[in-house]
Write a protein that binds this DNA or RNA. Structure first.
Lengths: 137, 137
DNA sequence: ATGTATGCAAAACATTTGCACCTGG
DNA sequence: CCAGGTGCAAATGTTTTGCATACAT
């Protein structure tokens, strides 16, 4: 993701937008809340107000640059959208997130929707786990 | 679910609790928000304040009487817990909810967690659809 | 009687919005 | 220059909480 991409999406290249993008690209965590983006920027002295972060995040989501995820937590998480659909395993102890994709599960969902006469618009599968690290602690 | 069951769970039989239970049992919708429980009770003249509804709903969830669901909407929904795990199809147009259970999907989730070395605690699969009724409108 | 539950009003908290000012192209 | 973006403060909407009173057993 670079400034050209932003421009192509009809979004002006502004400092807040670039900073927020960079936060995602340089963070070791792929899944960030609005608040953690805020924290990252505060720490790097590149402060952007939360309201702007939320606005930019929403625009990025509309533009298809990021995805907003709902893990039944108190906040939404956002991840860069690489175009590869996947689902998530979320550790209930440490909050870490792993991604996976399973063809069989995807297919079965299509079949289930078909049986009901419905068209799938989207789906979300969250597997809440105790991750391998937390199991041994 | 009757007063005896409530008592067995260590919950006193109070008017608000009975009214809220009845709202679930008599509603044609299985999936209700705190607010829609409130509306139902207002309409039947059995008014219970929202704060109490939230408190009772939380107690019921801890007691295993109901489940709290998160469909990526602005509120949580609650359903009577009949002990049968299932997942949901949610219509993005009309908000109607259908339930389903698929053994294959359940199994695959176990396998995926196992591959990662994690233990499943819970999971949530929401298929967002356009339902058959909304397709034809 | 007494520990719980309720009602009310107020708090909490993530997210959104109105509006005046700024900025990118 | 000017539409669009930002910053700030205030609003929103759901859910939670503190506290004094009422109730179940």
């Amino acid at each position: 993701m670079n400034s050209g991409d932003l421009k192509d999406l009809g979004l002006k290249i502004t400092k807040p937008r670039m900073k927020i993008l960079k936060a995602f690209e340089t963070s070791k965590k792929r899944h960030l809340s609005a608040d953690s983006v805020f924290e990252i920027l505060v720490k790097s002295g590149e402060d952007v107000p939360l309201a702007t972060i939320y606005r930019v995040l929403n625009q990025f989501e509309s533009a298809g640059i990021i995805k907003r995820l709902n893990f039944n937590q108190d906040q939404f998480l956002y991840e860069l959208d690489d175009g590869q659909h996947h689902d998530h395993l979320i550790c209930v102890k440490c909050g870490c997130v792993e991604e996976f994709f399973d063809d069989l599960i995807e297919q079965r969902q299509e079949e289930i929707a078909k049986e009901k006469g419905s068209d799938i618009v989207d789906h979300s599968l969250c597997i809440y786990v105790t991750c391998i690290k937390c199991k041994t602690n």
